[in-house]
Nucleic acid binder design. Structure first.
Lengths: 227, 227, 227, 227
DNA sequence: TATGAATGAGCATTCATTCAT
DNA sequence: CATGAATGAATGCTCATTCAT
């Protein structure tokens, strides 16, 4: 398909390797704590070669962030489900699985920690990550309202309620405790409770939806044990 | 009351000054980006004097964090209200006013950004901040359940739902965008919506409580305009 | 006439371009301050191409200096005048116009500044510039002595007196103040005074020659205004 | 007399040592060619200590130049002589002995070579060196005119004539050839010829003055051999 | 107890030069 | 022939930390 000349391909490969090393080192040490030497060593090349590809430390940082942003965007491709509960459940887990990955959390810590130094980077990250998700959630909510399954006025607030209910607690803990890997069980506890609370507040038929939720949860548990 | 010898008092005063300077500089530049020179200059003394009081940069960082933690604890003394809605509303605003202050946010960014380097500090911060709040919220929830005003099973999850509903959205945005000062009006939008959602999900008498909420909100608005 | 194969011609053309770029960059930044990157960029080619033509930075510097020396030699072709005063006046202006050009001065500053590092280059420059001029001046002086117009013993000293009288002051200033462009009027002041002093000291008929000088000066002024 | 606290004295001593090292290294290698490491090594201390005393390379360069300028000013304290010929002779040798010293020449080469990069330094050097001398010379000339010994109109031009006659030739050669140490005999040849030419052009009684000059020259030669 | 001065190690960045293509 | 990419060695400058006073 793509037929790049070998030169160009080599170049891109190497840039990719540098960006990967930068992600790793910056994530672990922060912007100031990371040194170009560390990144070069991690990428397996010398410092001048690094500078051959990226003109400065800030440039490298911004390029790495920008590249990560593109990856984030790829991560949020939800397969839409027709049923309300299926849809919410699917969305929640899809998002949680993405966002709770260690690399993702490390990146978020980095962005937050360097927000003062790189306000633009931080804003851009926010725009292409969380705000993108919010937009997806709003679509979901409005679709379900159109089907008569949800009842609300302000789609944005509803979307944010949903996010806050399912993920804010574990993500906050994960942000502050880098070593604590939060188990799938713990995650399930928050997510399932969050959906339940959400349904009680917004569903037009909470009783049916809550028992449907129990079924979906059981199905998922069975699925997991099969693996 | 205080009967410290003048020597000791001087010493404490100076330490306080150093810790203040450290907070300011670390918040703005991060741990690695901050230099002992900057902190000494900000505190108006020389570097060796700094080292006389704190043995190393890490020590100073940890001492500053510890001191801040104590201040955080002081901040969360809620005046309990008898009525459910009053109580939730009071709690939400009390907490929001504390937690959304610029210095508080800067500190949170710092903790999160340095979580890799100082896992203990970060965990301790978490324990004395958010977890303390959570405990308070759980008490509140259980008291209201005892009065028959709320209906739920797991107090911890309910407390976390409440927190996620009222503050996760604006706090997240504030963490990523250090310059965006979030207006009281915006904050009110999230908080009021959060309480409403919460009542719909957990109140034993949502209709009454929601109209009570409207009244409380109006009262607050009147209060604000009086100032 | 020129029957070089096109290859060779191309090669020489490129070398010329490199030498021009080197002159410009070295003049502005000095030897150490200039980088091969800057020179390559100025010449519009890549570094390895540069190294293909010149084996090292020192080589390039020396080649450039050598080339400039050849240009200097071309510059001093005086049209001899029969009359003493005409001859001195002509010579003085011819020389001044050459030597006070910005590029010439920049080159002189470069040679002097790098005299420690490149003593041979500096000596060679001296030999093909100033010493060449001095030789020409000595011829002039001896010719005029043969005609009975000048009276002296040591031709070299007389030649040097002449040079010191007409140009040492403005050239010294120009060497130290690269931005001060010395006007034609200022130059005229020094040159005319220098010739006058010279005639008073060495002419066999000062009165006649001095009034002749006034006439020549007026003629020149008229000439200038005609342009 | 001077009673500086030992601290301050130590500090000044060390600064002096640094400035001396800077003079040496900058003179030999030029501004760009000199490194802070070389200067620190020459001064017998470490780089950070250097930076403790001078905030940057440019600062150090400028401070060194400024210090040298002060030394230059000290060098030109002529003991005035009553007789015209004595006075000129005395002045010429006093000036030549100062200006032809190797360190002085090295500094002049440095200033000229870096004139592009440090125009202010170069101008300041010019102002406190050559222009100071010129002013002294003008005073001398005017005093002698008042005594009826010289005849001229423009004192500045006369002063510059004198300078150009006695020193421009050897100084120019010395600037371009750092290794060629110009002998006292050579210097004498230029100086004595220069004064002679000057007297022929400006003295009101050239015959008397020229024979007086011969006497002065012989006296000097006798003096030299006595040493 | 507080300070000015010192230092070894490290930092981002650049340089002259070389090599595979 | 010309180029993009690579590198070892500096370069200017800063840092956390220590010591003499």
């Amino acid at each position: 398909m793509r037929q790049l000349p070998r030169r160009e391909q080599n170049r891109l490969e190497k840039q990719q390797r540098i960006l990967g090393a930068a992600l790793k080192v910056f994530s672990q040490a922060g912007y100031s704590g990371a040194s170009m030497d560390m990144i070069a060593a991690e990428a397996g090349l010398t410092k001048p070669t690094l500078y051959h590809h990226f003109a400065s430390k800030t440039d490298l940082f911004e390029a790495m962030m920008s590249a990560q942003r593109d990856l984030i965007l790829l991560s949020f491709e939800t397969a839409p489900e027709s049923d309300l509960v299926d849809h919410l459940h699917e969305f929640a887990w899809n998002y949680a699985d993405t966002v709770m990955q260690p690399e993702f959390l490390a990146l978020a810590r980095l962005t937050i920690g360097e927000a003062h130094r790189f306000p633009d980077v931080s804003r851009a990250y926010q725009a292409s990550g969380p705000e993108k998700v919010l937009a997806g959630l709003m679509d979901l909510m409005q679709a379900q309202r159109a089907l008569g399954r949800l009842s609300f006025e302000d789609a944005e607030l509803v979307a944010q309620d949903f996010w806050g209910l399912i993920l804010s607690a574990p993500r906050n803990r994960a942000l502050h405790e880098p070593d604590a890997d939060i188990s799938q069980a713990t995650l399930a506890r928050y997510i399932e409770n969050g959906i339940r609370t959400f349904l009680r507040a917004y569903s037009t038929d909470p009783a049916t939806d809550l028992s449907r939720l129990d079924a979906v949860i059981l199905a998922r548990q069975a699925d997991q044990q099969a693996d």
